[in-house]
Design a protein around this nucleic acid. Structure first.
Lengths: 192, 192
DNA sequence: GTCTATACACGGATAGAC
DNA sequence: GTCTATCCGTGTATAGAC
C-alpha cells in the first residue's frame, strides 16, 4: 500500500474542516448556537465527534471560526467598486446589499444571532460597528456629492432602511416582494 | 398559628409567578433561551427549582409565557391614539417606537431571539407579520392624507427605518445618539 | 487523519417532606 | 405554597486503537 503524500493529507484536512464549518453554519443558523450539539454537527458533516476536536479545540472556537468565515463573505459582498459617479455608487451599494439578503441570509442570521447576546463575542461587536460606520460614511459622501440636503441624516436613514430590511427578512419569511422594494429604493435614491 | 386565607395564597402565587417571569425575561434576553438553565432562573427569582415547575409545566411553557408577556407590552406601547391630524399621528407613532427602544429593549431582544426559532414559536411569526402590516398601513394612510408622493413605498421605508433602528440597537450597544436620530426623523416626516 | 468508547458534568424534570 | 434530594438523559471533551 502506497503511503499518502503530504499533499493528499492536506487536501483531506481542508476538505473535512470545510465540511465541518459548512455544517456548523447550517445548524447554528437554523437552530441556534446553544441548541446545536457537537454530535449533530459531526453527523451532518459526516465525520466523527472525535475528529471535530482535531480541528477545533472547543465548540466555542468552532463557533468563532464559523462567525469569522460568515463575516468575511458578508464583508466581501458589501464592497462596492468605487466609481466617479455618486449615483452609480449608491445604486451599486444598495444592489450589493439586496444580493446579500437574497443569497446569504443564513450567514446574516448567524451573525445577528451571535450579536444579540449581551456578552457577545467582543470582536464581532467591534467589527459590526466598523461596518456600520463605514457604510454610513460612504453613503454620506455620495449623497453630499449629489447635493442632497442633510446628507448625513439621509445616509443614516438609508443604512437603517437596509438594516431594517434585513431584520424583517430574518423575522418574517419573505414578508413582501424584495425586488419591488429594491426598485422603490433605487427610484428614490437614484433619480436619474 | 392562623391559617392563611385564600387571598393571601393567591397573592403569594401571583408574586412568585411574576418574579419568575421577570427573572426569566432578564436571563433569556441577555444569555439566550438555550443558554439559560432552570436553576439559574429559579436562583435569580429566589425560589426553588421545584416551585418553578408548580407554575410552569416545562421550560418551553415558561418561555412562551415570557414571550406572550413581552409581546403584550410591545403591543401596548406601539398603539397611537388616532388623531384627526395625520402629522400628529405619524409623529406620535415614531415617538412611541423610540420610547419602546429606549425602555424595553430587553423584551424586544427576547422576541427577536425567539423569532429566530421558527419551529418552536410559530405563533410569534404570525403576530409579527400582523404588527408589521398594520404599521405599514397606518403610515400609508397618514402619508396619503398628507399628499406625499408614493405613500405606500414611503410607509414601507419608514417602517424599515424604525426596524433598522431596533436592529442596530440590538447589534451594537448604543451606536449613536437616538434622540438626535428621532429629531431627524420627525423633521423629515413632519415638516410643520 | 479518522474512528469508537467513555469519562464526567450539567440540565430538565419529578417525588415527597414540611 | 415551598423546599430538598434525586433520576436520568444529553452534551462536551478526551483517550486510545486503527
Amino acid at each position: 500500500m502506497s503511503p499518502r503524500t503530504t499533499e493528499q493529507f492536506e487536501a483531506m484536512r481542508i476538505e473535512s474542516k470545510d465540511r465541518i464549518i459548512k455544517s456548523a453554519l447550517k445548524l447554528f443558523s437554523s437552530k441556534g448556537l446553544f441548541n446545536t450539539s457537537i454530535r449533530e454537527i459531526a453527523k451532518e458533516a459526516k465525520v466523527s465527534d472525535g475528529l471535530l476536536y482535531n480541528y477545533f479545540k472547543s465548540k466555542e472556537s468552532l463557533a468563532i471560526a464559523v462567525m469569522r468565515s460568515s463575516f468575511d463573505t458578508v464583508d466581501e459582498m458589501i464592497i462596492a467598486h468605487s466609481d466617479q459617479n455618486p449615483e452609480v455608487n449608491i445604486q451599486s451599494s444598495i444592489q450589493n446589499f439586496i444580493r446579500l439578503i437574497e443569497n446569504e441570509l443564513d450567514k446574516i442570521r448567524l451573525l445577528a444571532q451571535m450579536g444579540f447576546h449581551k456578552e457577545k463575542f467582543e470582536i464581532l461587536n467591534q467589527l459590526t460597528v466598523e461596518k456600520y460606520e463605514s457604510s454610513v460614511n460612504k453613503f454620506h459622501k455620495n449623497l453630499k456629492l449629489l447635493g442632497v440636503p442633510n446628507p448625513k441624516s439621509e445616509a443614516r436613514f438609508l443604512v437603517a432602511i437596509l438594516d431594517g430590511l434585513v431584520f424583517e427578512f430574518l423575522l418574517m419569511d419573505n414578508p413582501f416582494d424584495i425586488q419591488k422594494f429594491k426598485k422603490e429604493l433605487i427610484n428614490k435614491y437614484c433619480k436619474s
